[in-house]
Write a protein that binds this DNA or RNA. Structure first.
Lengths: 341, 341
DNA sequence: TGCGCTATCCAAAGCGCTTTGATTTTTTGA
DNA sequence: TCAAAAAATCAAAGCGCTTTGGATAGCGCA
């Protein structure tokens, strides 16, 4: 069933039927009703491609996910993010176009989306410092929103981010107030911009409190369970072991906990742990009282907001650079306590 | 830069340029080279929508992800699956269209994709028993592949699935051989078809070995860490506690482990655990020797294969119903040992 | 030389929609 | 009552591509 058939069926012109369905005012209320009824009855939906050709709008947003051939660390975060973004899209009749490409072909994927005009806008994920994708996408002339920020980019752009620096700063202050001085930092890979900000927050809190930073307690790796386990094992056996850990993910935090338990140590009593919890909806951090003390932020919510921002920018491309900073919560759980004397 | 401009630039007709780019034989090699060169130089890519309109093919595959308003359990599995599928798509110049809708609107989402002709095929996720989506999608006339199988459907259809029944059967046999008799089953929600198959596999192994099945040791819930923790806590304090657990996910398995550690018990010595590990790429189960003994299957690989199957079916819709059964590995780790006497 | 081939190339139609610029019908106002 | 204004409708162009059905040129061969 296409527009032509539907209009013939109704004895109306395509123009009128199209206008009736799209809510234009130059159609009488009676015809509008008649058209709407017929459309529902025959399950008529305008062909997306034809409509896109005519309007020049794709009604779709592009997400490019680079795939390393090893593990894809961003994966769980990404899943939740698009979950949130997808909500916004479908509420606004937008589609989501996903391109999963080898990381070597990421630039190509953006160019292709633009040249083929298959999307009206883009969301950029996981910015690195001096991320050249931002300049690239800018040059494509497509509206875009970055999830996160990239240091070292001069041009302004639209972004939604969590205040990672402040989150880690507060969490570290909290540990210091509990009397901890030897605090280990298990950070993510520091080519990611947010990881740098987290370290900066950590260092800032230590400096402000006049606590010496021990480089031998600072690590930066991919956030696996094993990473947490191995580093913690190694550190706990060192001459001056840390009494607290700041860990950049729940999964690695579990690794640290495992190392403690191997030694018969109790989390929150012998050693404190604060994690950053991206609050993935499928992996809740415990019950009413969380297992881990954590800096929490909802990735899903970030997805919703970034998508909303992008649709706004598409609707009005002259909009000032939109910047949205989300604050993380610091939620106290069972993994922290006063430093042992 | 569109086809018209490019052809004017070259002093050729649109026909010739289009044919040159699409590899038709009625173009001289010389012109083909010239056209290809100009196209690269000006970064010409045919407009997707226009091409789709003309050919009637969308060059896109639809995935519909229903969103419950609570946690979205399928999430991590889903992320890995589309990672694999996406590889196949981009290698074949297909796009992936993702629709994340409230679970009440799922049927509507499929209908819309079909009526709007925005995709050439669909992948169905997480089939339930007697899943009516299969009949629905069938009626839409779009090629589709199901990830998983649904019992109680009479019409044949294309699917890719892991042999969940066999996997759980083998794992249970393994525990029985180790001397375990009181084995708990922490299954997923049994409206999901695969969960039913897993239980069937478990029961079959028990029956074949002449071991009594204790209904009080069988549970079916959403697979969270907390679920594992709570059930294990409860069972370990019971009069006749289980000596082994079959757990349907890594995350819940971690919960069970936590319950053990609370009691000072050691996994693999006091109590054995076998998990089903969907082998999510970002959450590796330990190092060279896995932490958990597990039935393993790569969701990513399943995604790749399902996508491949779908593209084959699209290329030749008359194809016999394709059925692909993947066997899970049983990999022995540190969480299993002989039943304590 | 002229005919039939083949190798190249092209004009134009058509995909299903929106939108411009009429045209027709109805209503309004003096 | 009738012209002008408003309301409702329509025909046709156009979005950027593919593809059908020629057209043209160059070639071998009798």
């Amino acid at each position: 069933m296409n527009l032509k058939e539907l209009s013939e069926l109704l004895g109306l012109s395509q123009t009128t039927v199209s206008r009736a369905l799209n809510g234009y005012p130059e159609v009488s209320e009676a015809t509008r009703q008649r058209v709407a009824k017929a459309a529902t009855e025959h399950n008529y939906k305008p062909n997306n491609r034809a409509r896109g050709l005519a309007t020049g709008r794709a009604m779709a947003i592009g997400h490019v996910i680079p795939q390393t051939n090893t593990h894809e660390m961003v994966n769980p975060i990404f899943g939740d993010f698009i979950g949130g973004a997808g909500e916004t899209y479908s509420a606004n009749n937008y589609d989501m176009l996903l391109s999963l490409v080898p990381d070597t072909e990421e630039a190509q994927a953006y160019r292709q989306m633009a040249a083929r005009a298959s999307v009206d806008g883009l969301i950029l994920h996981g910015p690195k410092t001096n991320d050249d994708r931002i300049a690239l996408v800018h040059s494509l002339g497509l509206p875009f929103v970055v999830h996160g920020r990239a240091s070292g980019i001069d041009q302004p752009y639209h972004w939604v981010d969590v205040n990672n620096r402040r989150a880690f700063e507060r969490a570290t202050e909290f540990l210091i107030q509990l009397g901890h001085r030897n605090i280990a930092l298990l950070n993510g890979i520091e080519t990611m911009d947010f990881a740098q900000r987290r370290r900066a927050g950590f260092e800032s809190a230590m400096k402000n409190a006049g606590v010496a930073i021990r480089p031998d307690l600072m690590f930066s790796r991919e956030m696996t369970e094993l990473y947490g386990y191995k580093i913690a094992t190694q550190l706990l056996d060192a001459p001056v072991p840390p009494t607290a850990f700041m860990v950049a993910s729940l999964v690695s935090g579990m690794g640290v906990r495992r190392a403690l338990e191997d030694r018969g140590m109790k989390m929150g009593r012998d050693v404190s742990i604060v994690i950053h919890d991206d609050d993935l909806s499928y992996m809740p951090n415990g019950d009413t009282v969380p297992m881990f003390t954590a800096t929490k932020s909802s990735v899903r919510e970030a997805g919703r907001l970034a998508a909303k921002m992008l649709l706004d920018v598409i609707a009005d491309p002259t909009l000032e650079p939109q910047e949205l900073m989300l604050e993380a919560q610091l939620v106290v759980g069972q993994s922290t306590g006063p430093a042992p004397i």
